[in-house]
Design a binder for these strands. Structure first.
Lengths: 152, 152
DNA sequence: GATATTTAAGACAAATTTGTCTTAAATATG
DNA sequence: CATATTTAAGACAAATTTGTCTTAAATATC
């Protein structure tokens, strides 16, 4: 399990919001938690991490909710991961040894290091716009429910 | 964090034992926990999972301890991972969606899937003998202590 | 056989993650 | 201004993971 549940929830919720970018204003969190089958209060706390990290903007009251703080092409998956699971989750030793690297590798560094760095780059370079585009051509889903959140 | 702490401890302990394969009989668990800085009782419970899965053999009493159940070339890293973290830890969806695959992918399946499968194959094909050989030519370490467990 | 050593097993505790609930604050609407 | 809606915040609880402790069982050695 590479990501925590909180991180998974945060990513899925962000994808959901991103799908409506430019079409609707603020998306209420209860709509997201219903659509994705996530506890409302738990999701609220997770999304607060994203608003504190300027990935989302929230607005209180009727017609309130959350929305992306920037254009989808300016938000990477990596930003979400870092905001929730932290910087270390995608750049540290697979055996947890501090200082593991090419000069002082752990026995699995040659195997994990390149894959980890490639994943880091992929998540750094994949934006919400990329995800949105893929939704248009593939039958993606972000919920265990059939096609939860997808508009087609 | 791809592996649980228990899994990390199990892998490191197995590497330690493997380094002595053919040179010593049973290695006492307290020696391992001391060398690697792992709680003795916690490590004992983890290693019991490995003995139950026929990866290690244990022996009680004076001169007792644990040793590999098979030759190092017949034990893969993947076996250890499966025994401790379970089968799903290296073959499931990064967003935790059941049934995620090429026919019903999650939005990150194209990114994670190939890397995950490659890691699976790497761990399936990397044996303790491979790790032992690498120890001979590189300054590996399996402890935060300087060169913990290495014999040179 | 007595003793010391070592793993096995399970109860228990601490820490972390996950999830729930209540109250407060902000805001749109009538 | 009153009310309903919605996020913010924090207390609290449940679940899981991690770590500790005690007792039992096995075994080598004297």
């Amino acid at each position: 399990m590479l990501f925590s549940k909180a991180c998974i929830y945060g990513i899925r919720a962000t994808f959901y919001v991103s799908l409506y970018q430019g079409k609707r204003e603020f998306i209420p969190i209860n709509e997201i938690s219903d659509a994705l089958g996530i506890s409302f209060h738990f999701l609220t706390k997770i999304l607060q991490k994203l608003t504190r990290n300027s990935i989302m903007i929230s607005y209180r009251g009727p017609k309130g909710g959350i929305t992306l703080a920037r254009a989808p092409e300016d938000i990477s998956i990596l930003e979400i991961i870092k905001a929730i699971d932290g910087e270390e989750s995608l750049n540290s030793c697979i055996l947890g040894l501090p200082g593991c690297g090419t000069e002082r590798p752990c026995p699995l560094h040659d195997e994990w290091g390149p894959k980890r760095d490639a994943l880091y780059q992929i998540f750094a370079n994949t934006t919400l716009k990329n995800i949105n585009e893929k939704f248009l051509i593939e039958n993606f889903r972000i919920s265990w429910k059939d096609n939860g959140g997808s508009t087609h």
